[in-house]
């Protein structure tokens, strides 16, 4: 009898341990289940800022033609997945003639590769999870990983993100319906990894070999 009870106890303990180890990190806001989130400029201005710091010139630009959606489970952030697409033609640097060069070959070749895509496959290292019940706002930091396709070449990418989840309220309804999600991402793109060679001698002199991207994505739960 004792042996039977011990076996049952150990089994329950093992099952519980496996369950706990497999469970993802939650935002602690009482929400659960995979929520489909569509990027929406009514929630906030979806934008990617890019910075090139080279000895010859510093360039700062933006891209606004952003669309996409992702699935996020507030009780299991690691299971997040989705995709974001950026129109190359929406990139601008404040100079029409420089933008024309940027769209052309041997730079981004907008005609051949009109879109830049980010395929999100999951999150890891979720930390600094905070939830403020009074404002209905939850935040967390994490590392997002997936595939980044630029100039027709796909590379594995990992980037640090900050996730903000805001419960629907009268304030949010003034912009759009549903809970709001904002993700800020900071990562670097190595031009040569994507075979963006530019004109001879320009990359490394007037255009940095590594371009820093700072993205802000805003969406609402559908």
């Amino acid at each position: 009898m004792f042996l039977k009870n011990l076996t049952i106890t150990i089994s329950i303990f093992l099952i519980a341990t496996v369950f706990v180890l497999n469970a993802g990190t939650g935002l602690g806001n009482g929400k659960s289940g995979g929520k489909k989130i569509a990027l929406n400029n009514k929630v906030g201005s979806n934008q990617i800022k890019f910075f090139s710091k080279a000895p010859g010139e510093d360039i700062e630009g933006t891209a606004n033609g952003i669309s996409g959606n992702f699935t996020l489970d507030p009780s299991n952030l690691e299971a997040t997945n989705g995709s974001v697409t950026v129109e190359v033609k929406s990139m601008e640097t404040g100079s029409g003639s420089r933008d024309a060069h940027m769209y052309s070959e041997p730079w981004l070749n907008e005609k051949g590769f009109p879109k830049i895509t980010l395929q999100i496959k999951g999150m890891k290292n979720v930390k600094n999870v905070k939830y403020d019940a009074s404002s209905g706002k939850a935040t967390a930091n994490a590392t997002v990983f997936g595939d980044f396709t630029l100039h027709g070449i796909t590379t594995h990418m990992e980037a640090e993100i900050t996730l903000t989840y805001i419960n629907e309220s009268d304030k949010t309804k003034a912009r759009a319906l549903g809970d709001f999600v904002m993700v800020t991402v900071n990562f670097n793109v190595h031009l040569l990894e994507h075979k963006i060679l530019g004109k001879a001698g320009v990359v490394g002199d007037k255009v940095a070999e590594v371009v820093n991207l700072q993205a802000s994505f805003f969406g609402n739960v559908q």
Binding site: Q47, K49, G94
Partner: peptide, 9 residues
Amino acid sequence: MFGTESTEW
């Protein structure tokens, strides 16, 4: 609402 900055031209 989000405390973020965006750029317009």
